[in-house]
Simulated assay, not measured.
Amino acid sequence: MLDDTDRRILRQYQADPDLTVAALSERANVSAGACWRRLEKMRAAGIIQGQERVIDWAALGYAVQVSLRVTLDKTQRLAFDEFIAAARALPEVLEIQTFLGRTDVRLLVIARDMGHYMDVYRSRILHLPHMADIEPLMHVATIRSDESLPL
């Protein structure tokens, strides 16, 4: 589906999504017109889904990150839907993932400090519907975090 030129464009685009088409085409060694057409084709195909800005929440004073592994009461027909809808409403929940296996859902929760986390945990997380079990995993360090694909 992608040829070498598309891959060159995507590699440069991943490295710096703020590049103008002219600068991107120069780095990818393709004409500006061809670069623009290929970018539009990849957007239309859903390969490029947009650009996003990443905000460093730790720099804004959120020093605690906890991953919560949740097992739901699967005897309840709407357990997943109701749990996810309630978890989405919590501003401290940055990410929600679902799984097949012993863990049904993982929540990524941030807080300013341990006191704030305990308040969020006790007053909001523990009141989410249909939880059968919850296991918090305290984040200690990020060793590698990379969204780039090996193109």
Rank of each mutant, 00 (worst) to 15 (best):
M1I: 07
L2P: 00
D3N: 01
T5E: 02
T5H: 03
R7L: 05
L10P: 00
Y13T: 06
Y13R: 04
A15D: 11
P17I: 09
D18M: 14
L19V: 04
L19E: 07
V21T: 08
A23L: 14
E26K: 10
E26W: 12
R27M: 12
A28Q: 01
N29L: 02
N29E: 15
V30M: 00
V30Y: 01
V30P: 01
S31F: 00
S31D: 00
G33M: 06
K41T: 11
K41P: 00
M42D: 00
A45Q: 07
I47Y: 14
I47L: 11
Q49W: 02
Q51I: 15
Q51F: 09
Q51N: 12
Q51E: 13
Q51W: 07
R53K: 11
V54Q: 14
V54S: 11
V54Y: 13
I55C: 06
A59W: 01
G61P: 07
A63Q: 14
L68V: 05
V70C: 10
L72G: 06
L72H: 04
K74F: 07
K74W: 11
T75P: 06
Q76M: 13
R77A: 15
R77F: 11
L78I: 12
F83G: 10
I84Q: 09
I84S: 02
A86W: 03
R88Y: 04
L90F: 09
E92L: 03
V93R: 00
V93M: 01
V93W: 04
L94Q: 14
L94T: 06
E95K: 13
T98E: 11
L100H: 13
G101L: 07
V105P: 10
L107P: 05
L108G: 13
V109F: 01
R112T: 14
G115Y: 01
H116E: 13
H116A: 14
D119Q: 14
V120L: 11
V120I: 14
V120D: 04
R122F: 08
R124H: 09
I125K: 05
P129S: 10
H130W: 11
H130D: 08
D133P: 04
I134Q: 08
P136Q: 05
L137R: 15
H139R: 01
H139W: 09
V140G: 09
V140I: 12
A141H: 09
T142L: 08
I143M: 13
R144W: 07
E147Y: 12
E147N: 10
S148P: 10
S148E: 13
L149A: 10
L149E: 12
P150H: 06
P150L: 08
